[in-house]
Design a protein around this nucleic acid. Sequence first.
DNA 1: GTGAAAGCGCTAACAT
DNA 2: ATGTTAGCGCTTTCAC
Lengths: 344, 344
Amino acid sequence: MTKKKRITLKDIANEFNVSIATVSKALNDSYEISAKTKSKIQQYAQKHHYKPNSIALNLQNRKTKTIGVIIPNILNHFFTKVFVGIEKVATEKGYNLITCISNESYEKEVSAMELLKNSALDGFILSIAEETQIKQNFSHFQNTINQGIPIVMFDRVTDEIECDKVIVNDKEGAYNATNYFIETGCKNIAIVSTIHNLSVGKLRLQGYKKALQEANIPVDEALILKVDEFHDIDTLLKIVLDSKKVDAMLCLEEDSAVSTLRMVCSKGYKVPEDISIIGFTNGVLPRHVTPAITTISQHGIYLGETATKMLIERLENEDSETSHTTKVIKTNLIERDTTKPLPY
Amino acid sequence: MTKKKRITLKDIANEFNVSIATVSKALNDSYEISAKTKSKIQQYAQKHHYKPNSIALNLQNRKTKTIGVIIPNILNHFFTKVFVGIEKVATEKGYNLITCISNESYEKEVSAMELLKNSALDGFILSIAEETQIKQNFSHFQNTINQGIPIVMFDRVTDEIECDKVIVNDKEGAYNATNYFIETGCKNIAIVSTIHNLSVGKLRLQGYKKALQEANIPVDEALILKVDEFHDIDTLLKIVLDSKKVDAMLCLEEDSAVSTLRMVCSKGYKVPEDISIIGFTNGVLPRHVTPAITTISQHGIYLGETATKMLIERLENEDSETSHTTKVIKTNLIERDTTKPLPY
DNA sequence: GTGAAAGCGCTAACAT
DNA sequence: ATGTTAGCGCTTTCAC
């Protein structure tokens, strides 16, 4: 099997002893070219599987129809779902995705951005790495924007950068969940956070506090469990369960919800009779553990779709210097077996 | 904030009233250029963040340092892990990833390949969509290879295409699992397959049969459950549990292992005392359900790394027309609570 | 030591 | 109706 080299305009031009320009025009169905020339060239091109060299086109247009995607952690189910949404819309609109995983690292995020920019893409869709949110160093984003490359941020965003954003209504999600606890008779509501460094973590905490305040329940800092490299979740849970009366726990992401459920059960509490649990992110895990965990769905796929549409919209209307917008995706509560039913 | 347009060689040349060629050589540290010219140009370039336009470079080199990745389903934990491995090595070696999801569809696979080829990449890493394996139509792969674009296939492969491959030792994995059942006293071993259309599904079935035959246990076709659009898993499981004596079940992927566990428990069987269960794919789910499921790990990350190394190896040694190789990744059994311990 | 020119594949303005 | 030319940004002979 011999390698068929890709055929170019030049090859076709030689074949018919016409100029390259004629071939180009013929293939683009220009009115300048006679019908019969057009048809013979088009036929020949078809037969020989002519495909324009898109690198050459890109050089000319300074457009690549490529979107750079940077995701903090693809093993996180929420991000996987967002990615599915991004991929779906991108493919529909004929865009390619070029993807890096920042692995929550600032270094990696910066270098990924460099790498991707070097391969020339039209814009970015990204969610900020945890380390970057801690460092609060966003200059690589600003530089990118200054170079004329638009960014759409999703989920983990920052006010410091002006760009299009798609976020989840985290505050409201936590607020609603906390209210749900309150309405089903819970009063001592703990919160388990592994993500207090993230913008989303902070918003969720705000929503929790707001609901408590509205219900005239004092915020007890001892019930706010911050899991980090120095404080593992099991220890924190044990301490609070042994020292405090707790009848509900709001977990700020999927994995800690599962861990919390385990610990609560192993301590002999009945779920949801003694302790109710709600967790953020409606992944596979909460649905499959026993009892199945009530979750707050963030509609990852829809979020990804929305972000991609926003970016493509901006790319294809560069003339219109519209200002940047932030879209908010509503969460909703998916009731399962770790919460009591609402009273009617 | 004004848009700083990207600076080009031409801009620098104008700045110093030298030719573009001189600038190019200076930046490439050519011996032809005087030390002082070099240093002033290099400094200027640095200060103004000169970055070569990689599209122009690509045009010239016909290399893009970009790898196309096609994954059947990113929501499948195994593929997500493979993707992590691919991404890791690609980034290390300075390659970009341009990714599509075939969604198990033949159409989408073909068009994804077209889309990706148009954006000019150096090679592909892919796993074949289910529908494609059913159709057995692989000409899009052959065409790509004929165009001089190498492919590395992973996990789901076909003998019909000659290319580099990385596969899991599926047959041996199923063989070992089945033997494990036999050694722990099981005799009536069922198999639950949702993937009999896939190459990997067939291999796993072979391993199962081989182990049975070696142990002189007759293969009972009624114990081979093929789940498909017409036969849902719950019904098949009920029928076999009601009509047959079963003391072990080998599930060919993650989700059906979880479903099987549920059904077996809900029928009142004790796991593993009455019925043992082993499932392929060591994802989050099997580890977190109760009881935790014994699984066969396919080392997805390592597989992804291996595939990527193979492709880059081939890309960077195009001269050496080495023949194609197939690497086999060993599986191993991760014992949890759905199997009895081995007797010593 | 520096520059002019060709070429990578293609398009588009401008001849003929 | 067809061809010529320039140019996208860069590298690489080959002259000077």
